[in-house]
Each structure stands twice: as C-alpha cells, then as structure tokens.
Simulated scan of single mutants.
Amino acid sequence: MTYADILLLLGSGFLAGAVNALAGGGTIFTFSALVAIGLPPVTANATSALSVLPGQIASTTAYRREIATAFRRLLPFSIISAIGGILGGLLLLNTDESAFRALVPFLILFATILFMLTPRIASFGEGLAARRKSDAPGALATGLQGLVAIYGGYFGAGMGIMMLGSLSLTEGRDFHALNAAKNWLACIMQGLAVVVFIFSGAIDYRAVVIVATASILGGWGSVVVGRLVPQRMIRWFVIFTGLALSCWYFVR
C-alpha cells in the first residue's frame, strides 16, 4: 500500500463518515476507493462493510431509548434482517469476482438512483403508513424488509433509503422512530454479514483501520460540514459522484 493509497482511503473514509451522518450514501466512496487501490471487488465490499460498521453502531446507540420502546414491534423485522444479512453475505462470497465486477456499475447506479428518489420513497412510505390498520408488521412489510436485508448484506449502499419504504408501514411519520429502527436494523443485517466476511477471510484489515478511523473523524467533522455546506449541495454532490463512478465502471 503506497502513501497515495493511504491518502485516498483516508479521504474516502472521512468523506463517507461526514456524508453518512448528513445525508447517507457514503459507502459508494469507501467501496470505490478500495477498488481503486487494487482490492478485488468482493474483498473491497466486505472491507467497506466492516469499515463503516462502527459509525452505524455509534449512530444506533444514540437511539437506544426509541429502540427499547419499539423493540417488540421491531422483533419480526430484526429476525428477518438477521437472516437476510447472512444470506446476502453468503451470496456475495459465492459470487465470482468477475461477475461481481460486472455488477458493480449497476449496483452503484441503483444506489444513486435510490438516493435521488429519497423524497419520493419517503412520501410513498408515508402514504402506506396512513392506510395501515395496525402497528404490527404485516407480510408485505416483512417481505420487503427481507429483500432489503439480503441487498444490505450483499452490497449495502442505498439500503437505508430502501428501508424508508418498508419501515414506514410500522413507524409512520415519526422521524426519530423511523431513523432509530433503520439504524438498528442496518446494524443487524450488516453486522451479521460482516461476521460472515470475517470468518471467510475476505477482509483487508489494514484498509479497515485506515477507513474506519477516518470515517469516525468524518462523522465528528460532519457538524462543521453541515454548518458550512447546505444539505442540498451535499445531496447533489453524492448524486453526481455516484453517477460519475457508475459511468466510469461501465466503460472501465
């Protein structure tokens, strides 16, 4: 690993930590940087998942009161997220490197489009929530969450946005309840996928230390970034970068 590689990982980790705290979508940066320094795509994805996990856990602990209140209601979602996260991780490890490399531009483009459609997805979820007759997760909500969990264990970028739709069926329009549930379930699905990656030996721990440290610092620095840069500009920066990266991977 060269000094240029280290600087690239530090920059992507810091940027991902700040963007995740402010708008979401930071995994696109860490994954792309890990591929750029020469890691195979599957290893890069597994390494990125472990690198951003500490930040997700830290965000989740801030909502421990809301999670405790909604724990029984979230239990079916938690179970399906655990199963889906493991399945997604196993699916990634059983995907050939060349096949996964071919999927990368589509996955990044998909995550970017999801990010662009966040307001519409949130409105769709609110509409479903307005028509719900019970707080208990139904078959539709649980099935959607299972699909999100498999995707989250497999790639991860954009899974939080996908959960805005499925979780609105039970959490309604309460931002804190929705965000608490999203963070909790993201920790479960990606945490168990990371366990699968660790036991398979698919992680580059040198890169994890660099990216995770920078990501934590980026999360702290997001307070300053959020005051200086409007969130709308941050969102468009993520969208532009995602589209540019997907195009680059398509022609690469």
Rank of each mutant, 00 (worst) to 15 (best):
A21E: 02
A49C: 03
L10N: 06
L39F: 12
I113D: 03
T30F: 04
L144D: 04
G143H: 09
I28T: 07
A49I: 03
D5V: 11
Y63K: 01
Q56K: 07
D96S: 15
S81A: 15
D204M: 00
V35F: 13
G84N: 06
G160W: 11
F31L: 15
G191W: 11
L92M: 11
L169I: 09
R120K: 13
L245D: 03
G242H: 02
F124H: 10
L144S: 11
G226S: 11
V195S: 08
E126I: 08
L74S: 10
V208E: 06
L167M: 10
R73F: 02
F240S: 14
P40S: 09
F115P: 03
Y151E: 05
N20T: 02
S59L: 05
S59E: 00
A44D: 03
L192C: 02
F237K: 00
F250C: 10
D96K: 10
G201W: 00
F29R: 06
D204H: 13
D5F: 07
F124C: 09
L140N: 06
G221A: 06
E126D: 13
F124P: 04
K182Y: 12
S78K: 01
A70G: 00
L243S: 06
T69M: 00
F155M: 06
A149E: 12
Y3R: 13
T43Q: 13
M163L: 15
A177V: 10
A141N: 09
D174T: 04
T43M: 15
I113T: 08
F115M: 09
A141E: 15
F110I: 04
L128P: 00
L107F: 09
W220I: 14
A21L: 09
S246K: 10
F124W: 14
F71N: 01
R232C: 00
G25M: 03
T47A: 07
S168W: 02
K182W: 13
I80L: 12
F110M: 10
I188L: 14
E97P: 15
R252G: 15
I198R: 00
N183I: 13
A23C: 10
L22H: 00
G38N: 11
